[in-house]
Design a protein around this nucleic acid. Sequence first.
DNA 1: CGCCTAATTGAGAAGTATCAACAGAAGTGG
DNA 2: CCACTTCTGTTGATACTTCTCAATTAGGCG
Lengths: 224, 224
Amino acid sequence: MLAHAASLSTSLRATGRQASPDRRNSDRLFAFGSKEKTYRPDEQIYREEDSADHIYRMIRGTVRGYKLLNNGGRKIEAFRIRGDIFGLETGDRRDCCAEAIDNVRVMVARRSPVVGAPSDSDTVSELWAATMKELHRVRLHALWLAKNSEQRIAGFLLEISRRLGEPNIVYLPMSRQDIADYLGVTIETVSRALTQFETKGILRRPGPRQIALLDRIALHRMND
Amino acid sequence: MLAHAASLSTSLRATGRQASPDRRNSDRLFAFGSKEKTYRPDEQIYREEDSADHIYRMIRGTVRGYKLLNNGGRKIEAFRIRGDIFGLETGDRRDCCAEAIDNVRVMVARRSPVVGAPSDSDTVSELWAATMKELHRVRLHALWLAKNSEQRIAGFLLEISRRLGEPNIVYLPMSRQDIADYLGVTIETVSRALTQFETKGILRRPGPRQIALLDRIALHRMND
DNA sequence: CGCCTAATTGAGAAGTATCAACAGAAGTGG
DNA sequence: CCACTTCTGTTGATACTTCTCAATTAGGCG
């Protein structure tokens, strides 16, 4: 029982840092009867109002989590990439959709055994870590409410680059429409900001889906 | 142990609904060695980078949780009112400030005993419920990224009215600047939207801090 | 190559911020 | 009690940002 307490406490403290995509970080969550599934581009993983029976860990590819707006629009809440855990809901029904952007491979675990496995303290700890990480991410996203389009797009580039391991060239898995729906702006605004950044020498675009960040400092300065 | 599993599961499911401000909902969290504290208007409760040792439950008054932006601005992340639990952090340091708006009374509990009390399944359950409720709230807030000023202000009025129990007249505890910083717009934009709503007969303003919502349906229509 | 879709660019309209002026309420001191 | 100050909120004019709609270009793929 003390072990339980210690691990829960540890997980609460550990989530200030970003968890590595290392599989071991969520081994316990997906230890019992979990299985792998694959999805094709634009294939739905779950819809709003589906029962929230399972949680997922990304193995490969990119997933968009989004809500359909009543005006016909769409708001993307998160992009999930390798190592991310998603599908943690507040109720027993999904409150957003999830669908594959490209070819996706995930691990799927039933939520009930995970939630109801109290003797395994590591499982509880991992669930806390994943939940706290998600809370932190959403809080940061909500901060963008006070930012203009340039700042949002700069922030997006830094975020996606960091999560992909800061490669020389970022290969964007998502379309301009996806980016726009994530940031709450239009595709034209995204496009214009990228053009402007390229003009200033902040980035270079070898192709529409490829972006080389030449000056991360400049991007950081916009947000701070 | 099965009781633990059941309660954890239950709390996950229960948080889709809004918890009532009833004290019993968080009795266990504040059962051990918690004490009450009061704060005067604009008094700081904690700062960013303070150690996140305690969690709080609102008894009376209103608190703003906010981050200072590097451009000198301020982004309010949440208003906390009677019954709300706040101070749940992802790391061991505060990542936002909290300060009293009016005369505030809170219950304060050390986080460590709460987190490290595994034998009390209700405590774990309540911590889950509070965390999940917070996650849900922040997710909704992030959705406003895609909304214009009119929609944000309509949404704010509905939110604050609902949380205060939908009285005939909403007495706003916070200033226009607070509202503006919460929504990511300017005070002038807030003011103009209120004027426009009043012109349309959607609301009436007996005073600057008093708003009578005459047509909630119209406000809902703006967001949907 | 030719088709189809995604992305970019341009022009004008709409939305929002900025700056300035004004109004009203609350507090202060005579 | 009144004059004065101060603070908050509202209103107006203008500049800037972002959206909308349309046209064009660039890439991907048969």
